[in-house]
Design a protein around this nucleic acid. Structure first.
Length: 103
DNA sequence: CATTTGACAAACA
DNA sequence: GTGTTTGCCAAAT
């Protein structure tokens, strides 16, 4: 397989590999994608996901163990995580040490 | 091709 | 602990 995959495609692959009940950070995904300083672009990729995508985008949070989204999107991500058994506070905080995905 | 935009992160105050 | 500034870089315009 080609190693010239786009950044987006690598991000998709990595996120698809996150097991249910676990979370990871934008920075970690960027690092696994081969661009350790491209954490923002990971968010950019997820933001631009096609509607219908089955990618578990909700398993990606920021380095402070917090959901980066706001408004309705925040609630949707929180509900999706809680549905997998992940405890999320009303403020959108998650215990990273407990739920963090490591290879 | 040039400029703008940001689902981030680290450094700083 | 919080708020601000700076660096970063792929994608969109």
């Amino acid at each position: 397989m080609s190693d010239q995959n786009n950044f987006s495609e690598r991000v998709w692959q990595i996120i698809a590999a996150i097991p249910a009940g676990k979370v990871t950070t934008y920075g970690d995904v960027a690092q696994l994608a081969g661009s350790p300083r491209a954490a923002r672009q990971v968010g950019g990729v997820l933001r631009r996901l096609p509607e219908g995508s089955k990618l578990p985008w909700f398993r990606v949070i920021n380095r402070h163990g917090r959901i980066s989204l706001q408004g309705d999107d925040l609630f949707r991500q929180r509900d999706a995580l809680e549905a997998e058994g992940i405890e999320v506070s009303d403020a959108g905080e998650i215990e990273l040490e407990k739920y963090r995905w490591q290879i």
